[in-house]
Amino acid sequence: MLRVDVYKQLGDFAVEVTFVSEGRVTGLFGSSGAGKTSLVNMIAGLLKPDRGFIAVGNEVLDDTLAGIHVPPHRRRIGYVFQDARLFPHLTVMQNLHYGRRMNGVVYDRADQDRVVALLDIGNLLARRTGQLSGGERQRVALGRALLMQPRLLLLDEPLGSLDSARKAEILPYLIRLRDEAGVPMVYVSHDPGELRQLATQVVVLQHGRVATFGDAGVLARVASAG
């Protein structure tokens, strides 16, 4: 369960968002500038809310009244960025195991093989990141986040920088991830099509506030209203 109740002032723009999601995949939908990335950064701990509360399951990650702000490296929340952010000085294999090593998770060959197979990246392991295509980079970034055994996975427009052919290439992996990996996800997108295929619950953001919240059906109403 993900509970979010935050306020953050960013220049003359404010993010003020409250929702509780039980879903396996919580979709964050909104146009660019709606505050999606700021919200995800707050869940990851990269951005500190001015006031409010964030909890995953039973663990409180932010509670400004109680003075709680768990730093990002202690949250164990996997974050897949739109631009992948693979480490250029490491090979694909070293990238995959970075989060696992930093979290002190014991090397587990079976776990590695499962993630590598799920994302179909077995032939990339020895490569340097500069030799990967955009779609490959995103798959490696996903694998890196999964191998740290996160309690929550944040995906900030992971298909945003890809053309539609590449999107179609990755989407099935994300659906498999949802159905097989058992890690709850927050999936950010401005594409209703993506969210209809993936999200079990959807938060629609507008100008930094929650406009609608519900199952994927709300996207149809947003689409017809918009």
Binding site: L46, H73, I77, F87
Partner: peptide, 20 residues
């Protein structure tokens, strides 16, 4: 942004400095 990615992957600030 790479340093941020490292911190979300569990690296404390000193580890971010040493490994990234």
């Amino acid at each position: 942004r790479l340093e941020q990615a490292a911190s979300t992957l569990g690296a404390a600030p000193s580890k971010v400095f040493l490994t990234v």
